[in-house]
Design a protein around this nucleic acid. Structure first.
Lengths: 224, 224
DNA sequence: CCGGGTAATGAATATACTGCTGATAGAAGA
DNA sequence: TCTTCTATCAGCAGTATATTCATTACCCGG
């Protein structure tokens, strides 16, 4: 699950990020209005935490933009403003929730989980492809209904590929999805190769009827 | 069992909190109308103790809100007002009970327990999984119908895991559920390890056919 | 068709970190 | 008081992940 945190106060950023990371989410951050807008238009996030008061512009404009481009992200607004007006504007623009500073981190966590639960509950939380089943809630993958133990990275990779079956996935987007945007050297995909290798082995050993094929120079694709 | 106490008189708050904590409940407090409203919308409590006269607003509005959002919390109203009118309004809004100040702490305890008993009685009060049975009312766990003595933390952990069997539970949410949100250092799960260790040992010694497996870097899961 | 260069794979190792244990000390309750 | 529960500590073991290196497969221009 990818979360974008748009917030200029760096210390708050830190705390929130750590806490959510501990829950197993991948958290990216944006410090300014521009950066937030940019990330939002380039990437898809499962949940966006949005501060209203940002250097460079009004956070609500980001929300508006999100609505305009039809991205279905789930947005939780964070704001020092307790004003009813802002709250109404925010919720009218389709925000899912609203938190006023200061707040307990535990509260935020609960909120995020609730929003994501709603999302996954409405949608499908089980991915299926050939004889493979992946349950996002239970963090389990099954082949022919017998469980397959995957570690976290392998699991994330498999989920991403299954969600985009038969579609070409560039190495960089895969890496970004699984590792976040902390790529020191964007040219180096050795760690990806490693994980792909292990995942392939596990898939093969358990008799999965899918394969991860490499498209030379472009990326990977999961085929049935 | 989580209880929310919405009450502005800090000394009364203290007394009630201590007393209920001694009974083994996790008690959170809210000092003001706003804080109460906030906590109620963020969390689920098993019981809410609600003062009518609050700084910032009328406690009955909180009750109304609770009813509107369909949360099935059990509410006990605490008020200095002896007015029949308030009482009727409160009970009409679905409050379970009504206490007028001053009251004996023992009486409050008794009522809380009675409300919770009713709640758990209406709902499910026995969790079952493989050859383990846990009775929420009696605070007892049985393996093959022979009792297993658990202390409070172990019991809470087991209950939470059993309620979410086969589902991954992050360490932080488990910790939050069992210890409340008073986590000084969110990185430190040593106390959790300790309890998990003891719980595992007891489960094993009594021949339980479930195991608490650790999902590396993510959390725990109870498997049959 | 060939060969240079790049991409992908595989195995093997190093490292950092998570989770576990047993002992112990402190706190709470009887 | 004594007992039980809970928290804390240090060290250990095991795992996931990163990294390295060698090998193989692939693409493309000549």
């Amino acid at each position: 699950m990818n979360i974008l945190l748009i917030e200029d106060e760096t210390d708050l950023q830190e705390v929130v990020k750590d806490s959510l990371a501990k829950e197993g989410f991948l958290v990216e951050t944006a410090d300014t209005f521009q950066e937030g807008l940019k990330k939002i238009s380039f990437y898809d996030y499962d949940c966006v935490l949005l501060d209203i008061t940002l250097p460079g512009g009004d956070g609500l404009q980001i929300l508006e933009h999100l609505k305009n481009i039809g991205k279905s992200e789930n947005v939780i607004i964070i704001s020092a403003k307790d004003s009813v007006d802002d709250k109404i504007r925010g919720l009218n623009l389709g925000a899912d929730d609203y938190l006023t500073k200061p707040f307990h981190i535990a509260e935020l966590n609960a909120r995020v989980k609730s929003v994501l639960r709603r999302k996954t509950f409405e949608g499908k939380n089980i991915l299926e492809c050939a004889n493979i089943k992946v349950d996002l809630n239970e963090f389990m993958a099954h082949v022919n209904d017998i469980p397959m133990t995957l570690n976290r990275k392998e699991f994330d990779i498999l989920v991403y590929l299954m969600a985009n079956r038969n579609r070409l996935i560039s190495k960089s987007s895969l890496a970004e999805k699984v590792w976040g945007d902390y790529m020191d050297d964007a040219d180096d995909f050795e760690f990806l190769y490693s994980q792909i290798k292990n995942l392939r082995k596990k898939l093969k050993d358990s008799g999965a009827e899918v394969k991860i094929s490499a498209m030379y120079g472009m990326g990977y694709k999961l085929e049935a």
